[in-house]
């Protein structure tokens, strides 16, 4: 009896493998199937939510009958994510976006097995035959927001609540520090990290410590930042945001924000497939190509000279006369 059961199990296993290895069912070329793998959630008010909204915006533009979207959240761990990436590829998705630099190794391992599938990830510039890499020039927005903080600070103390010293957080912070220094060499910018993308309580406590230390402007990135924004709100200290404009939740706290327009990036990748390009493009997000933008919160009275300085700097960044340097690798 047991042997019979084992035999049947083996047969089923082989059958399952054969089905799994069968070529993906062809899909009508006009409908593009997109899978999105997120390290956090679609409502984190940061990195993951901004990409999710970008993808949904493209879908709205093309229509749901021409674009299918599947989202998997909370796959911060690259090992778990790799399983999901391979699974989506086997299911025949056309474009698989693994939204984080930590997925790089998995993608370069999996992508060669699925030459007809496009993969995308970032922050990075390393591409493959069927791999797109996207790369926000977060230092540009950091620089602009740094000008605001540098010109408006009264205590000359500014706090940065960072997550982990990596990816676009490093670029943003580096730009921010330079932005402050360009207008106010006396201001001290204290750059700190919680050591985690998700430690909201730690970020809140870190923001409080910055404010106890005299900081009257705060900024920071990643989903943990919401803890710091709430702490800033409770003491009436303004916040300068990145990734998304968090003023929807904190209208009296978020003074200005750099916003990632992922929609344009996702649209470009979808269009590239139509052109027959399955990857190999390095997609930068910058103010010059319109994939980054700066939002001011109208509730704040930002002095005219500050606004003017930001505007002229923005133009200089756009026309290339000002290049915000990055830390030498």
């Amino acid at each position: 009896m047991q042997k019979y059961a084992m035999f049947m199990f083996s047969v089923l296993l082989v059958a399952a493998l054969l089905v799994a290895c069968a070529p993906p069912t062809p899909v009508a070329p006009e409908k593009v199937r997109v899978a999105l793998i997120l390290p956090s959630t679609i409502d984190d008010l940061a990195w993951s939510q901004s990409m999710y909204e970008g993808v949904k915006a493209v879908q709205a533009e093309l229509g749901e009958d021409r674009m299918e979207v599947t989202v998997t959240e909370n796959l911060w761990n690259p090992v778990d994510a790799a399983a999901a990436i391979r699974d989506f590829a086997e299911q025949g998705y056309h474009l698989i976006i693994a939204h984080g630099a930590q997925y790089q190794n998995s993608l370069f391992e999996i992508a060669p097995d699925f030459p007809d599938t496009s993969f995308a990830y970032g922050t990075s510039f390393k591409t493959g035959d069927n791999i797109f890499a996207y790369d926000p020039q977060a230092q540009e927005g950091g620089y602009l927001l740094g000008i605001i903080a540098g010109m408006m600070t009264k205590t000359n103390k500014i706090g940065v609540v960072g997550p982990v010293e990596a990816g676009d957080a490093v670029k943003y912070n580096y730009g921010f520090v330079q932005g402050v220094a360009s207008v106010n060499p006396d201001a001290e910018v204290s750059v700190t990290y919680t050591g985690s993308f998700g430690d909201t309580a730690g970020a809140g406590e870190m923001a409080k410590t910055h404010m106890d230390n005299g900081a009257d402007f705060l900024t920071g990135t990643a989903q943990q930042a919401v803890g710091a924004i709430q702490a800033a709100k409770e003491r009436g200290v303004p916040w300068l945001g990145s990734d998304m404009d968090q003023s929807v939740v904190w209208p009296d706290t978020v003074m200005a924000a750099q916003v990632y327009n992922w929609k344009e990036v996702v649209r470009r990748m979808v269009d590239a497939r139509v052109e027959g390009k399955k990857g190999g493009e390095h997609l930068s997000l910058s103010f010059a190509n319109g994939r980054l933008s700066l939002h001011f919160n109208d509730r704040f009275n930002i002095p005219a000279d500050v606004k003017a300085k930001v505007e002229t700097t923005l133009q200089a960044i756009k026309d290339g006369s000002l290049v915000v340097p990055l830390p030498s690798e």
Partner: peptide, 17 residues
Amino acid sequence: LSIGLNNMYVDNITNGM
């Protein structure tokens, strides 16, 4: 955590505490 320290709720609010 949610109504005494953070005064908000986010997913995975404990972060392993």
